[in-house]
């Protein structure tokens, strides 16, 4: 297989990591909305943790992106 083609496939596979981040975001916001629905008074306090959690979850997808870019450099 051509090295460039393999690199392109590898980059595509690295993008699969976004799926995990998507699941994470879904779980995060789903649970957050559930929690706020149960305890609307805690919204302000929860919002802080939601955004922090979002940044963490999002970062996971971006690690995949970095990997893709690294592969791009190796091609």
């Amino acid at each position: 297989m051509d090295a460039t083609a393999a690199a392109l496939i590898g980059m595509g596979l690295a993008a699969l990591g976004f799926a995990g981040s998507g699941v994470g975001l879904g779980v995060l916001f789903g649970k957050a909305i559930e929690a706020i629905a149960r305890q609307p008074a805690a919204e302000a306090q929860l919002a802080k943790y939601i955004w922090i959690g979002m940044a963490f979850v999002e970062a996971v997808a971006l690690y995949g992106l970095v990997v893709a870019f690294i592969i791009m450099g190796k091609a």
Binding site: L8, M72, G73, K74
Partner: peptide, 22 residues
């Protein structure tokens, strides 16, 4: 599309795809 990107990046960064890794 990515191939063009790869090619274009290869122009200014010989060693790596991202300028950040230079």
């Amino acid at each position: 599309m990515i191939a063009t990107a790869v090619a274009a990046t290869a122009e200014h960064t010989a060693s790596s795809g991202m300028p950040q890794f230079e």
